[in-house]
Each structure stands twice: as structure tokens, then as C-alpha cells.
Design a protein around this nucleic acid. Sequence first.
DNA 1: TTCTAAAGTTGGAATTGTTCTAAATTTTGT
DNA 2: ACAAAATTTAGAACAATTCCAACTTTAGAA
Lengths: 136, 136
Amino acid sequence: MTLTAQHIGKMMAERGLRSSVQRVAVMRYLVDHRTHPSVDEIYNGLRDGMPSLALATVYNALDALAGAGLVRRLDIGGDVARFDYSEQAHAHFVCRKCGMVYDIRGEMQMPAIPAGFEAAEIDVTVYGLCKKCKNK
Amino acid sequence: MTLTAQHIGKMMAERGLRSSVQRVAVMRYLVDHRTHPSVDEIYNGLRDGMPSLALATVYNALDALAGAGLVRRLDIGGDVARFDYSEQAHAHFVCRKCGMVYDIRGEMQMPAIPAGFEAAEIDVTVYGLCKKCKNK
DNA sequence: TTCTAAAGTTGGAATTGTTCTAAATTTTGT
DNA sequence: ACAAAATTTAGAACAATTCCAACTTTAGAA
């Protein structure tokens, strides 16, 4: 399910985000790779087609995209940030052995927020052993 | 609600964890400070009474305690790890403005885990604006 | 289309939280 | 009290991320 550069550019414009070749490339990488890639994976994945791409640009693009709500930063521990594009909200399952991150779809309820607080986003992460690692 | 060194030592022994002056001090710090402190806060908080304490020791102690399940590492983004001692499970609310971490108690439903997977732990974090920051 | 100001990109250096290492110390079981 | 194993120390090393200044691109106006 690849989106065109135009479509992605439009998504950015709607959120008040400037477009650039690099930002579109990063966004498209996340749309096409639903594997919760790290910054380095994105960077290396894009370098083939964009040899002059700077690592700092990937960081900048991800900051901008995450700030605009087009992309999600996953804080699942480990030493690198992972990113996620997804239309619908979902939880994550992180395998403690292989580090793989799986999507868990299905509804989940927001816990009760204290009065006067304003919730913007929720993160649900389950840690454990994935099927593959358990069978060993 | 301070626990004695003996009590803490016993908790560690029950989990097969060796006791040491430093580990007990770190554990006690977390029991006494339910503010989700960072490694640096713990380190500086303990240095008064233990001038020779090494930063690496705080990291080691926290690793050991977290590994034994006596303490929790919070992956709530930001650039530092935060730690949490708590008898009962609870979610967290992280303020995007001031960075403060609040506990959210009350039941919440576990998302459905795929068949064959084994869940060990769940993290629920809500991001937004806390009461203080909202009123400004 | 051309121009201009504002914003984004580059590449490398700087920063900083965390981990590593080897020697000294402490702990546990005998 | 003894010996073996584990922990602590202090500082160096490491690696993910951020910063910086010069250069390039973008969006919008003329």
C-alpha cells in the first residue's frame, strides 16, 4: 500500500507541515515498512536512492512528522527509538528475547484520567515472549 | 512508609538477589521517593550519606532490582530512564509540558495477546497536559 | 516564471546517558 | 575466620542523538 509523493505531500500540508524530498521519503518508508524501524534502519534503507541524505535529516524529519501526528515514536525501551506509521490506534507487543515488535489490534479502553488533566495520546505496550521465541 | 534495611534485604533474598549496602540504599530511595526518579536523581540523592557511591553502581543496582521484578523501569520517552517502586500495577500520565509523571490507579483492561505469545508485563502510558500546565 | 525570505538539509563536531573494564572490596557459605 | 564468587569503584569508552554554520530548497508573492 504505497502512497504517492503527492498524497503524502498533501497529508503534510493538511497538518501545516512543509514538504521536502527527504520528509516525503521518510514518511513513505514508514508507510511501506510496517516493522517499527529504527532511525538507522530508515537511514540505511533510504541511502540507496538518496546518497546525500544526512542522518540528522532523518532525525529532523521524524521529529517533524511525529510532531504533526503523522507518525509515532515508540518508547519501548532498548537503546534506540523506533517509529511507526499507522492509521488506527493499536498496542504493541515487544519480545524480550528477539526484540521484535508486533502490533496488537483490537479495542482498548483509556484508563480514567484525573480531573483537570487533558489526555492527548496513549501508549500500551506488552512485554513478554513471542511465539517463535517461546517454542525453543 | 519507610522499610527497614532488613525488610528490604529479605525482599531481595526472596527473589534470589544478593544484598549490598548500595542496593538496599537504591531500593529504599525508590520506596521513599514515589516521584519516578531518574538515575541521576537517585545518585545525587544518595551521595550525601554515601560519598563513595559510584554512578555505575546505581545503574547496576537498578538493573538487578528491575531484573528481579522489585522495581520498574519506565520507558516514557525523554532522554533519561525513570524508575518506579510500587506494590500494585498502575498506569502513568506524562505531562508533555513539565515532564512530570503521575500515577493513574484503577483497573484497566489488558489488550488481547495473540495466541502462542506469553505476556509478562504491561505498560500503559498516557501523554497530555497535567492540571497545572493546562491552567496557564 | 522569477525572486526572496523563511525553512530545511548537510556533514561533522559536540553532547550526554549508559555501558564497560580492571582492580579493590564486600558478601555468602563453609 | 576463610575462600570463592559477586559487587563496587572510577574513569575511560561507546553510541544514540543533538547542535552548528554554511549551503540548498521550498512556498508564495510579484
